[in-house]
Amino acid sequence: MPPVGEKINRRSLLDVLLAIGVVGWLASVLFPVLRYLKPLGVQTQNGPIKLKGEELSKLEKDHSVIVRAGAARIVVFEDSTQQLRALSAKCTHEGCTVQYVPGESVIWCACHNGRFDLDGRVLAGPPPRTLEKYSCTRESDGSVVVQLGRGPEAA
């Protein structure tokens, strides 16, 4: 029979081995599972987007329209001087979709009554930051194009 000290050493060595095994095994299970669960990145759109027919007619009718750009939402609207503008439609407070109120010339978020001016700056309410601004132009053929990425005016 081996001496007691040696036995304890062997026992603790065994425990260390077991611990390494368990940790490694957990890692080899969790790594695939977590990788599996992490959603694949949505392709971020960077080029210009062109408004579709129905979006154009909605813009015509309501003076504003919300369009998708990849995962992002963008509000395109026509201010009282008939100038086209585009802002991120995701409220900087908790992410509700904002809307253009033509009568008051403000961007309004209904969730917590946040207000922005037409350049996206916060006027009132809880939103902490300005809405990102994009350049938006009407082409000669009447179509409307929003330039993604930082518009020159926002710089």
Binding site: L14, L17, L18, I20, G21, V22, G24, W25, S28
Partner: peptide, 9 residues
């Protein structure tokens, strides 16, 4: 390898 380690343990 890790599982064998546990098994051996």
């Amino acid at each position: 390898g890790f599982m064998s380690l546990i098994a051996a343990g």
